[in-house]
Design a protein around this nucleic acid. Structure first.
Lengths: 222, 222
DNA sequence: GCAATATGTTACCAATCGGTAACACCGCCA
DNA sequence: TGGCGGTGTTACCGATTGGTAACATATTGC
C-alpha cells in the first residue's frame, strides 16, 4: 500500500477512505475542507465507480455525487470526462511504477529476488479484482478509440513494464531471456484475467509457485 | 476455420463474407435474400462492430445499417440489444467449444498432442486480435452487471474450458495437474491480453514454445 | 393474381448523457 | 466590514440512445 499525494492507493485500485463521503456532510460545516481536497475526492470516487460499473457505465453526475460534490465543481477541475479518465489511469500507472521502483530498491542486484517478490505482490493484489478483473485491462476494452489519451498511457506503461521484466530476465541469466520475459508477462496478464473465473486463491498461489520454480531453476543452472 | 450454420467464423471473430452488404443492394432486387438470411447478417455485423468499437460504443441503428437492413427488422429478430449481445457471445462460445471437440477428435488418446495443437491454434488466432484483444474478455469488461446473460455464458464457458485443460493435464501425467492447468490457462488468457501491447508474432511463437517445452518434458519424465 | 408473410420507412418517445451558464452562498483574509 | 475565491444549485442545451407504432412495399406460396 503506497500513498500518492493524499490518495491512498490500495491493491491497484483507488478506494475511498470513508465509504460514503456524500452522507457525512449535510447542512452544517458545508465545506470544512473535509481532510481530502475536492479534486482528489473526485478522482477516488471516479476510480471506484469506473472499476465497479465500467467507464462507460457511469455518468459524471454519479461521480460528482459519490465524491460529495456536484457536476459543476467536477468540471472546474477536469476539462472533460475523458481527461478525468486519463488522470485516473495515470494515477494507477504511476502507482504501479512506484511499486516497481520499490521492488528494485529492496532487491538491488538480485534479479531473482525481484522476480519472486514481484509475483508475490501481484498475487496479493489479485484479491481486489476477483469480480471485475484488472482496471487497466478493462479500460483498454472500454476505450476502443486508439487515439484516446488514456489508451496511450496504458500502452506505454505496459511496454515499459515488459521491458523491465525482460531486463530482469537478462540479469537473472535465463538462457532465453526474451522467451522467459514473455512467459512471465503472459502469466502476469493471465493471472489478472483468470482471477475472474477461477478464483484468486488458486491463481495467486500457483502464479507464485511457477515463478519460484523458474527462478530456482535458473539459480541452480547458472 | 469452421462453418456454423451459414455463418463463417474466422479466428474467433465472425466476419462478413462481403465487406459491404449495405452497398450492394440499392433499388433493384431489393430483397433477393442475399445468400445470407437477415438474422445472421445482423449477427455478423453486430459482432464486427462490437469487437471493433466496443459493445457500448455501437448503437442498434449502426448495426442494422451495417447489416444492410434497418432497426425495425433487427428488433423483429432480437427482443433487445442485450439479447443480441448474448446471442453473439453464445455464437463465439459455441465455435470455441466446437474447436475443442475437433481437437479431441484429431488427437484421440493423445493429451500431449492435444495440448500442443491447442497452443498452435490459439497462436494462429492471435493475429485477428492484435489491436482489440479477446472479444470475450472485452465483453466481460464491458458488461459489469453480474446478472447480464452474456456474462453468465462467458463465465460458464471459461470454467468448462479450464476443466477441460485440467482433465488433459491429468491424462498427460503432469506431476501437479492443477498447477499445470492453471499455468496453461494463465498463458492462454495472458496471450490474448499481451498481444495488444507486445505483438502477435512474438507472443504466439513463445506460447507455442513454452507449451512444447512443458509437454516434451512431461513426455520424457513419464 | 391473390393473400400472407417478410422487410423497409418514417416518425416518434422517454431517458440519459456530456457539458455550460447564471447566480446564490459560504468562509477566509485583509 | 468588505470583497474575493471556491463551492453549491438550478436549469438548461443538443446529441444520442434503446425501443415502438403505423403504414408502405415487396416477395413468396398457392
Amino acid at each position: 500500500m503506497l500513498p500518492i499525494g493524499n490518495i491512498i492507493v490500495k491493491e491497484g485500485i483507488m478506494t475511498s477512505m470513508q465509504t460514503d463521503i456524500s452522507r457525512q456532510r449535510k447542512k452544517s460545516a458545508t465545506n470544512k475542507r473535509s481532510a481530502i481536497p475536492v479534486r482528489e475526492r473526485i478522482l477516488v470516487a471516479a476510480g471506484d465507480l469506473f472499476h465497479r460499473q465500467g467507464i462507460r457505465g457511469v455518468g459524471v453526475d454519479a461521480i460528482a455525487e459519490a465524491a460529495g460534490t456536484n457536476k459543476m465543481t467536477l468540471y472546474r477541475y477536469f476539462d472533460s470526462k475523458d481527461e478525468l479518465i486519463e488522470e485516473w489511469v495515470r494515477g494507477m500507472v504511476t502507482h504501479k511504477e512506484e511499486d516497481w521502483k520499490d521492488l528494485a530498491a529492496k532487491h538491488r542486484g538480485d534479479p531473482h529476488g525481484q522476480l519472486q517478490d514481484w509475483s508475490r505482490r501481484v498475487s496479493s493484489r489479485l484479491a481486489s479484482m476477483e469480480n471485475r478483473g484488472s482496471a487497466l485491462g478493462n479500460a483498454l476494452a472500454e476505450l476502443p478509440d486508439p487515439n484516446h489519451p488514456a489508451r496511450r498511457v496504458i500502452h506505454e506503461h505496459k511496454q515499459r513494464e515488459h521491458k523491465r521484466v525482460l531486463k530482469l530476465c537478462k540479469e537473472a541469466g535465463f538462457p532465453d531471456p526474451a522467451l522467459s520475459a514473455n512467459l512471465f508477462y503472459m502469466l502476469l496478464e493471465g493471472a489478472h484475467s483468470c482471477v475472474q473465473c477461477i478464483g484468486m486463491r488458486q491463481i495467486g498461489e500457483h502464479l507464485v509457485q511457477v515463478v519460484d520454480l523458474m527462478v530456482e531453476n535458473a539459480r541452480r543452472t547458472r
